[in-house]
Amino acid sequence: MHDLAPLYPLGGYSPQIDIYDRITLTENADFAYASVAAHANCSGKLNDIALETIGVALPSTGQMTSNDSMTAIWTGPDQWMIEAPIHSHETMATHLSIKLAGIAAVTEQNDSFVHFDLVGEVYIDVLERSCAVNSRQMPHNAVIRTTIEHISCFILHRSTGHVSILGARSSAKSLHHNLTN
């Protein structure tokens, strides 16, 4: 029998943490993800049952909403990514598929994204250098879709001094390189 061990998106057996003078970039694989896209003419119905089914209200354009364990992230018109701790929500997509049958398409995204947390005093400087986002004006709970060196990303402004960057797992090393150089 094979003895397989999961690897983090950057290829290690543990998350990579880059600590600089006033900022830290941390590879974070602690979350499960599921994309939710409303079926045609069902966005109103989905919004009505989202709070009960998902645990958070679906946010409007460019926003995210959270409770203690789940976050709904706007990703496009009538589309959201649901984020929750993987240790307790690894099968979240299956559960949501059943609850939202006929109303929304749900797809598991657990291994599709790399998640970096950028924390520290100069996080805005890193974002200004990396992408075309007005990061100084970005309010808390804002979600912005952008590119970092031609890599499509979502930037989530979690709190003062803390943003998360979600990008394609297949581009993890390139994205990491661009954030650290």
Rank of each mutant, 00 (worst) to 15 (best):
A32L: 03
A34Y: 15
A34L: 15
A37C: 04
A37Q: 02
A38Q: 01
A38E: 02
A40I: 10
N41R: 04
G44D: 11
K45H: 10
N47M: 05
I49S: 10
I49K: 10
L51V: 08
L51M: 10
L51G: 08
T53W: 07
T53V: 15
I54G: 02
G55Q: 08
G55S: 08
V56N: 03
A57H: 10
L58K: 01
P59V: 05
S60T: 15
T61E: 12
T61Q: 11
G62S: 04
G62V: 04
Q63P: 07
Q63G: 11
M64P: 07
M64Y: 11
T65G: 10
T65D: 13
S66I: 12
S66T: 15
S66Q: 14
S66Y: 11
D68I: 05
S69W: 13
M70D: 08
T71S: 14
I73Y: 03
I73P: 02
T75M: 02
G76Q: 09
P77N: 03
D78T: 11
I82T: 11
I86T: 06
I86S: 05
S88M: 01
H89Y: 14
M92F: 09
T94L: 12
H95I: 13
H95E: 14
L96D: 13
S97C: 14
S97Q: 15
L100M: 13
I103G: 00
I103H: 01
I103K: 00
A105P: 04
T107P: 05
E108P: 09
E108F: 03
D111R: 10
S112N: 15
H115L: 09
H115W: 13
E121M: 10
E121A: 10
D125E: 05
E128N: 08
E128V: 00
A132N: 13
V133T: 07
N134Y: 06
N134W: 07
N134D: 14
R136F: 10
R136H: 14
Q137A: 12
Q137D: 09
Q137V: 06
M138C: 04
M138R: 01
M138N: 03
P139D: 08
H140E: 07
H140A: 06
H140V: 08
H140Q: 09
